[in-house]
Each structure stands twice: as structure tokens, then as C-alpha cells.
Amino acid sequence: MQLPIYQVDAFTDKLFGGNPAAIVPLKTWLSDELMQKIASENNLSETAFFVQSEKDQTSNRFHIRWFTPTIEVNLCGHATLATAFVIFNVLKNAEQTILFDSKSGVLKVRKDGNWLELDFPSQTIAPSEAPEGLIEGIGKQPIEIYRASDDYLLVYKSQKDIEEISPIFNTLKQVKARGVIITARAKSKRLDFVSRFFAPGSGIDEDPVTGSAHTKLVPYWANILGKNELIAEQISARKGFLKCKLAGDRVLMAGKGKLFLKGKIIV
């Protein structure tokens, strides 16, 4: 069996920037075991698989699933953007908006020139104590700690704190969470906030750009800064740029993509 595969750098307009995701279009679902093996073989933070949605056999509705090298996850932003990039720009779908049925509900992606805007559910956060291993693994005490769905969100005084953090991943891996988000106000006037994301327990030491983390970051910073439109940068080594908006119980995140690879998987 041969399957098409694409690799797209998401949340960037530069090759080798942003977050790379593998995209595998399917006519029918493969077994969970095979999809997990393909994701493990790809060894990227996410591999997305999609099929035409069973709910609505129209040209703009699909079902999507995401796999890290070790587990399936319920929500992934950059691989959704990368999938939409393939549907719009490689498969030449003529619609301006596409819908994805997912384990996190219906997700929308709207095309606006070279920008792709994700429409995701906002995630609530609540103040939290640090579980065992969290601060030891991150290596720097934050000024605030929140539990944000399946992640921890740590807030720091400055962007310099975010840049200097070098986690002990073996320690952080023991924390019972999908991942750990660290964030601070941006030092640049063109940005509102910066962040990084670590998920060694999910098979990813540091994720270059994490759309799903921004469903928690955007509500937090909208409240702190008193505005609903925000510009964000995830300051990993590859960096990623996001234009964000809090719209009621939804978070809109716009970014660009760059096609790196297209080929065939033989399984």
C-alpha cells in the first residue's frame, strides 16, 4: 500500500522555521496501531491524518487526528494549519473555509491570502500548586502557576527568563501533564507575549510552535493586557509567529505555512 505524505513548516513563511508537521491524506482510516507507527517513524512532533468527514460529504469538511511519536493527542494547532495548507494549496480546494471534525469538536480554518486562521475552542485556566518535579524540571521559579486543561502554564517576569530556561527533561517527564507552557510579556513593542512549550511526557522535549497552547495563552494575556487582539511569538530555536484574537469562547490564531516535502509512504 502506498500513501501520499507531505511535510509543512507551520506558523512561518520561511523554510526551516516554525513547526514541521507530516500530513497523510487517507480515503479510509488506517488502524490506530499503524497510524502510531507511521508517526513514530516520521519522528516529528505531530503527524496528522485526515479523511473526508462521514458527517457531511461536502468538499470542505474533513475528520482529523493527530499523533506524536508516542501518543495520539486531542488537539494540535500547527498540524491542523499544516493540513489546511495542504488542502488549500496542494490539493487545490477552492473553498475559503474548511471544517475539521476532531476529538476537540469542530475546528475551522479560514484562508485569507497567505494567512490561515485557525478557529479553536478557548481553554480555561485556574491557579494551581506546583506538582512534584515541575519547578525542579523547569529550573526557575515562576511568579504564577496555572493548571490549563492537560497542561501547566507558568508565568515569568521577563522574556529573558523564558529565553534562559533549560529544562531537565527526565525530571519534567515525570510530571503528570501533556506539557508545560512558559510565558512572559514580550520585550519587543511589535509583540504582546512570548512563550515556549515542553512536552517530554508526550514524546516531545520542546515543541517549536504550539497552536493548542495558545488556546490557553490568549485568554490569559487578553485578560492581563486588556485587549482581545494579540501578537505572539513562540521563541524556540525555529521560532513561530501568530496573530491571535479572543472571540468569546473561541481563540483565532493566524499563521502561514511553507511546503518542505511531498512523497509516498510504502506500508
Rank of each mutant, 00 (worst) to 15 (best):
A184P: 01
Y156Q: 01
S166V: 11
G139H: 00
G139M: 04
I143L: 06
L172V: 01
D101C: 11
I71R: 12
P121L: 07
E129C: 05
F49S: 14
F62N: 14
K108C: 09
K187P: 03
I181V: 04
G133I: 07
P167M: 00
G113H: 08
T47H: 13
N170S: 15
Y152M: 12
I181W: 01
R147S: 03
K103S: 15
S128M: 01
V180E: 02
L172I: 07
G179R: 02
G77T: 04
G105C: 06
S59T: 06
G133N: 06
A126G: 00
F49P: 13
V155L: 13
L153R: 07
T171S: 09
N60A: 13
S158C: 04
K189N: 15
T171L: 15
A82M: 07
N170W: 01
V155M: 08
A148Y: 08
P167T: 03
S102E: 06
Y156L: 11
S188F: 01
F50I: 06
F50P: 09
E72A: 12
G139Y: 02
A148I: 03
T70M: 05
A48V: 04
I143G: 00
F50W: 09
T68P: 10
K103V: 13
T58R: 15
T171C: 12
G133S: 10
R110S: 12
T80K: 03
Q159C: 02
